[in-house]
């Protein structure tokens, strides 16, 4: 069968070009890992400013890994805090600890709070019942700010989408620029066979990529995972499928690899903004609706539902349907776009 020979050829090309294969499969892992390192790092030593607090508390803060610096007045500590020299300032007023957090970075805030709580509850201190709960204030931000667990699922979607889009798009483009596409049109290969061959051939590697990303995020990076792994896998796979079909379709409108790269700010970046990594609540309502045409929005929504909220098929099937429908539309459009090379 002709589609099968096309698939076989794509697989062979991949194995001859191991660097591209590595980029598609390993780069998302590397970037996810880096992001996890930055936002999940547990070796961070918070810098705490102490204003007139008991000596033994300073010592135990120190023991817990904090870098403690003493300040003579609250004003001086707050000033250091606003200059980002400190992560938090602690003082006592009427026996009640007051903690002021810099607060712009949720993971740092969390580290400080955990550490301070541990110190204040230590047996050397007065019994917990006698201890007033600390008053916590934030200089910037708030206690409800997101963390890696919150945007991790979206990142899985973003990276799966980005790399598949780019590699599949450039591969299909190369078929045009080297003249092989035109050459194929002098064989009995049909246009739909061409598109189907690409979808399956690249789909094989996309599947490997999706499995690896999902396993890496949950198994190695320990990302929050309350739902079924199978759902996570199917969302990632369908999202990559959409990226694959969109990438090959858009390559029809690029004349060079360089022009393909130009689709990144136009196709990828807006999707990242609308995917839920950033809050779009302040945006005009009509603009917010733009997200409804973006595949990543549906993928990210489904991924969050599965990983954070632990929901099942009943919650994600609308998203999956949209992704599937988008893939089919992109494929159909691509079969049509190939008319440029042969009308039949």
């Amino acid at each position: 069968m002709r589609v099968r020979s096309l698939i076989l050829r794509i697989v062979r090309q991949f194995f001859h070009d191991k660097r591209t294969l590595a980029l598609m499969i390993l780069a998302p892992l590397l970037i996810l890992w880096l992001v996890a390192l930055i936002f999940n790092g547990n070796t961070y030593h918070p810098k705490i400013g102490a204003v007139d607090i008991p000596r033994h508390i300073v010592v135990s803060l120190d023991n817990q890994g904090a870098v403690v610096q003493s300040y003579s007045s609250n004003a001086a500590a707050l000033n250091a805090l606003s200059l980002q020299k400190l992560d938090a300032a602690i003082s006592f007023a009427g026996g009640v600890p007051h903690i002021t957090l810099e607060g712009s970075n949720p993971s740092k805030s969390k580290t400080v709070l955990l550490l301070v709580q541990k110190v204040l509850l230590q047996p050397a201190n007065p019994a917990p019942s006698q201890m007033q709960p600390p008053v916590i204030r934030y200089l910037y931000g708030s206690a409800t700010m997101s963390s890696f667990d919150n945007f991790g699922p979206v990142l899985i979607g973003v990276f799966a989408f980005f790399f598949v889009f780019l590699i599949a798009g450039i591969a299909f483009l190369k078929e045009r620029t080297t003249g092989t596409l035109e050459r194929l049109m002098a064989t009995p290969l049909r246009r739909w066979e061409m598109v189907a061959g690409y979808v399956v051939g690249y789909g094989i590697f996309t599947m490997v990529q999706a499995c690896l990303i999902a396993w890496f995020a949950v198994g190695v990076l320990g990302m929050m995972m309350n739902g079924q792994f199978l759902y996570l896998l199917s969302v990632t796979l369908l999202l990559s499928m959409t990226a694959l079909t969109l990438g090959t379709l858009l390559s029809a409108f690029a004349n060079s690899e360089f022009q393909m790269m130009q689709f990144i700010p136009i196709v990828i970046v807006p999707q990242i903004f609308f995917s839920g990594l950033f809050s779009v609540d302040n945006m005009a309502p009509w603009m917010r609706r733009l997200s409804e045409i973006m595949p990543l929005y549906y993928g990210a929504d489904a991924l969050r539902n599965v990983m954070i909220r632990g929901k099942g098929f009943s919650a994600i099937w609308p998203d999956l349907c949209v992704l599937l429908a988008m893939s089919l539309v992109f494929m159909a459009l691509n079969v049509f776009a190939l008319r440029k090379y042969r009308k039949i």
Binding site: R9, T178, G179, A186
Partner: peptide, 12 residues
């Protein structure tokens, strides 16, 4: 058919 430009897959 033999095209004017060599339509071959250079990785293969």
């Amino acid at each position: 058919y033999m095209a004017q430009s060599d339509a071959l897959y250079s990785e293969l």
